[in-house]
Write a protein that binds this DNA or RNA. Structure first.
Length: 902
RNA sequence: GGGCGAUUAGCUCAGUUGGUCUAGAGCGCCUGCCUUACAAGCAGGAUGUCGGGAGUUCAAGUCUCUCAUCGCCCACCA
């Protein structure tokens, strides 16, 4: 036991000390216990850097894993890292560019070597940063999605799905990222509203002098036009169907076709059909057996079919083509046009709809069972309303484009023979067998890699060793920890990841991956903007932790992040500060000082004769004062409420419960009362017992708080008791609510005392009396029992109310020069002989009289309403009547006091 | 276009099944205090037509409808 605590808590030192200790003692590994509990950490990108979203997310996970660890469950938090295909490849390519090289200069193998080197050197910084936050995953289980074990599972899954015809290859219009020169999934496209132009182009009709006007926002694609469509019901154009028109700036003649896709209301009712460059046009093309002419290169420049415009970037080409069209009088009109344009989530450049061969997963068969488990409540979402979003997506699901034209990722295990046949296999040998080829046949493996999420969706299984060698179906971990208990993640990846994990785990393990999903709030700045690097409104959490302490940051985040609501935190951009963190910092300091105080009192109690063994005798019920019973009752009801809040993922409530209990009940009231109780008793044994009693509650407070504030609670847990360094609060037993200690009556009695003390303080304060000046106080009333209770707590009231003398009922007389008030039938007089400001006091009492009169009026009105008295429940009416009686009594007494004021 | 969420004190937000709500907390503001753990503190105080309107009910911040404003998600017509 430390003999003394510093005046305030300094986090940095103790954070480092205890984290090292936790690691050394291996406290994050599961221990045998009652029940199991597990959480999968959403693997951060290997390129990731800690931001406030991570702070919130990981604090939540840590809170739950720590709590369950303390509840005795064998608990594992599975950590890991995502290889993040595009993000990582881009990063390494940027580095290469500084050397004036591209990935093609190095070649695939050499390039991948560079990526791995980069990964070993810079990757996974975020996992180290998580330690600063105090996160307690079982680090020994850290999995990287490109680890051999994960790759084995990915390959096996691909082959199984391929063999089941759930994976297929197809020519489709995909979202093409010209920067990455790869396909991306629908989920990786972000639509932005753009102000552009609608061009009305003239398509001259064959054999006629007239033209059709076709509206388009993308004139640069016109070399790919293969038709002009009109609606079959659109009588304006009926006569033209079947005729041909000339594509502007070219010699090509294309047919006028009838298709419902053309909307007579939109533009001119005529739409150009460019199957290779628009997903809708592609469908029209299929219906009418039209050729798809690709006029754009993978880097979004125009190809040789664009004639003079060949080699120009698509937007430059648009500009130049429009000029030429104007020159040749082929433009009827140009209008402002605001529409949504898809941008690449990663590269930020506009997505190009691009016709190419890609690999897809058939989603419908996988989605059906995945939808059911959520609808049936097997998997619960918090907040619940996300199930609607989930249902909507799952019922309108589209096939998932999983191929990426990148190098960094899991290579698609598909082998092509010379004859164009192909199959998925573990290796060439197996592929030859499957294709029925002889062993000398030359095969070529698919060049593409898989979407990053194709490994992420197996996360619940690969983290537990599933198919680590490509075969192992059942592992100890899978049997023990699947399904996991909780997934904490952002709602932004509900489709990317959450839905797909549910599908994959159901498909391959016939189990749900997790029971509860907690969708975190988005962290925003004071203006409601999402925190982002580019806006400069996202301070480095490590700096903030260094300034306030990890516990303070954790507590503040939890306190501010209600379930289902965004979190707003004022950010001071100038010094990159988050002032809200004061809340947690001040709270930590409060807890620290409460410990300091208790330690001091304990030393005082012990130092009298050094008899420590008396501690072992607990304070008996008979010895307990009303205040002791009250704090014990409050403590146990807080435990109960905390359990409840956490079970329902109301973490904000959890933090508020503890904040209020510790600050208000324990520190403001109980510790102040304890001072009085210690002072008034000369009994050494009693003082030691009382100090023991308070410390026991304090010990429970630390434990309740530990999941959210791990460091300071560990520090204090060791500071206030004689404990071995190797012991840890993180594996101590969580306090349990004992209903026997919860006593509503005791709490109500104490609330009376609080009201009376409050009133004395208020009277003193109204006359600006400093705390150092003690005044005589008299209390009168008719209710003998109530006065007796107060009499019992005379010393406490006297101490808290700073009374020089305190007379309660009996022979006490109403003092003359006094401030007065009435609380629940008890009249309180604070003597202020000679110093009373009669006019001020009169005004105060008059105000009170009118307040009471108003309330009495409205309550009487309510009670005389027959609808109320006949329909409201009995106890509500009784409560109203009691309230009325009490107010009338107060009114009477206040009026008397007013009259006798001289 | 479809869906979801929000709107409560100057700011950030609590407020579970409608009745102890005479609507709370933190920050900020005002007053008095270095009262023997804590000035990162203690005690006290002021501030709200609970977004507007209508309805259900004896009773609405809470339930229903409607309007307004803001935010998010999905889809996307050239």
């Amino acid at each position: 036991m430390d003999t003394q605590l510093a005046k305030s808590y300094s986090p940095t030192e103790s954070e480092q000390k205890w984290y090292v200790n936790w690691i050394n003692e291996n406290y994050f590994a599961p221990r045998d216990g009652a029940g199991v509990y597990s959480i999968l950490m959403p693997p951060p990108n290997v390129t990731g850097i800690l931001h406030f979203g991570h702070i919130l997310n990981n604090t939540l996970q840590d809170l739950y894993i720590r709590r369950n660890r303390m509840k005795g469950a064998s608990s594992v938090w599975f950590p890991g890292l995502d290889h993040a295909g595009i993000a990582t490849q881009t990063k390494v390519e940027q580095d290469l560019r500084k050397e004036g090289k591209t990935r093609h200069d190095l070649g695939r193998e050499e390039f991948l070597k560079r990526v791995w080197e980069w990964k070993d050197k810079y990757g996974g910084v975020i996992l180290k940063q998580l330690r600063t936050l105090g996160a307690s995953p079982d680090w020994d289980r850290t999995l990287f999605t490109m680890d051999e074990s994960a790759s084995n599972a990915v390959r096996e899954v691909f082959i199984r799905l391929f063999d089941e015809d759930l994976i297929y290859r197809g020519k489709r219009i995909v979202n093409w990222s010209p920067l990455a020169q790869s396909a991306v999934s629908d989920e990786e496209v972000i639509f932005k509203e753009m102000k552009e132009y609608m061009y009305f182009l003239r398509y001259y009709i064959e054999g006629m002098d007239s033209y059709m006007v076709v509206a388009t926002a993308r004139p640069e694609t016109l070399f790919g036009d293969v038709a002009v469509a009109v609606n079959p019901k659109d009588t304006r154009y009926t006569a033209l169907i079947g005729k041909k028109v000339r594509v502007p700036l070219s010699d090509r003649m294309v047919p006028i076709i009838a298709d419902d896709y053309a909307d007579p209301e939109f533009g001119t009712g005529c739409v150009k059909i460019t199957p290779a460059h628009d997903p809708n046009d592609y469908q029209v093309g299929l219906r009418h057996n039209l050729e798809a002419i690709n006029t754009i290169n993978p880097d979004a420049t125009l190809n040789e079919l664009a004639g003079d415009f060949k080699g120009l970037d698509r937007f430059e080409a648009r500009k130049q083509m429009v000029e030429l069209l104007k020159e040749r009088l082929l433009i009827e009109n140009i209008q402002d046009y605001t529409h949504n344009v898809g941008y690449s989530e990663r590269g930020g450049e506009p997505i190009e709809p691009y016709l190419s061969d890609q690999w897809f997963v058939k989603m419908a068969p996988l989605a059906e069972p995945a939808l059911k488990v959520v609808q049936d409540g097997e998997i619960k979402f918090y907040p619940e309303h996300w199930t609607k979003t989930y249902e909507h997506w799952m019922t309108n699901i589209r096939d998932w484009c999983i191929s990426r034209q990148l190098w960094w990722g899991h290579r698609i295990p598909v082998y092509y023979a010379d004859n164009g046949e192909f199959t998925a296999a573990h290796n060439e040998e197996e592929a030859r067998k499957k294709l029925g080829l002889n062993e000398n046949a030359v095969l070529k493996q698919d060049e593409d890699v898989l979407d990053t999420w194709f490994s992420s969706w197996l996360w619940p299984m690969t983290t537990m060793g599933w198919l680590a060698d490509g075969k192992e179906e059942v592992t100890e971990e899978l049997q023990k920890y699947l399904p996991t208990n909780l997934l904490v993640t952002g709602p932004d990846i509900i489709f990317f990841w959450v839905a797909r994990m549910i599908m994959a785990t159901l498909k391959f393990k016939q189990q749900i991956p997790f029971k509860d999903v907690y969708f975190t709030s988005t962290v925003r700045d004071g203006k409601g903007r999402k925190m982002s690097k580019s806006l400069g409104n996202s301070p480095d959490p490590l700096d903030v932790i260094a300034k306030y302490g990890a516990d303070a940051v954790r507590f503040t985040m939890i306190y501010l992040a209600p379930l289902g609501q965004d979190v707003r935190m004022e950010v001071n951009e100038k010094d990159q500060d988050v002032p809200a963190m004061d809340l947690g910092r001040n709270f930590a300091n409060k807890i620290w000082n409460a410990g300091r105080f208790l330690l001091m009192k304990r030393r005082e109690a012990v130092s009298v004769d050094g008899e420590t063994d008396l501690y072992e005798t607990p304070l008996s019920k008979e010895q307990m004062t009303a205040a002791d019973k009250w704090i014990l009752s409050r403590f146990h009801s807080t435990i109960r409420d905390v359990d409840n809040a956490l079970e329902n993922y109301k973490v904000t409530e959890y933090s508020k419960l503890l904040y209020d209990f510790i600050w208000k009940d324990f520190c403001d009231w109980y510790l102040e009362i304890m001072k009085a109780q210690m002072n008034e008793s000369g009994d050494i044994a009693y003082r030691q017992q009382l100090s023991r009693f308070a410390l026991d509650i304090y010990d429970g407070i630390l434990k309740l708080l530990h999941p959210v504030m791990p460091f300071i609670t560990e520090e204090l847990w060791h500071a206030v008791e004689d404990r071995d360094v190797n012991e840890s609060i993180s594996v101590s037993d969580a306090p349990e609510a004992n209903e026997e200690n919860i006593d509503r009556k005791v709490e109500e009695n104490f609330e009376n005392l609080q009201l009376i003390v409050d009133e004395i303080r208020r009277l003193r304060s109204s006359a600006n009396i400093p705390p150092s000046e003690k005044l005589p106080v008299v209390m009168l009333g008719e209710d003998i029992d109530a006065l007796n209770v107060l009499h019992f707590q005379k010393n406490t009231i006297s101490s808290l109310g700073r009374c020089s003398t305190l007379e309660i009922g009996g022979k006490a007389e109403r003092p003359v020069q006094a401030l007065s008030s009435v609380v629940r039938g008890v009249e309180i007089f604070v003597s202020l002989a000679g110093k009373i400001d009669i006019e001020k006091e009169r005004a105060r009492l008059l105000k009170e009289v009118s307040r009471l009169e108003n309330l009495i009026g409205s309550t009487e009105k309510k009670l005389s309403n027959e609808g109320f008295t006949s329909k409201a429940p009995e106890q509500v009416i009784t409560a109203e009547r009691e309230k009325l009686a009490s107010m009338k009594d107060s009114l009477l007494k206040t009026q008397e006091n007013l009259a006798s004021l001289k």
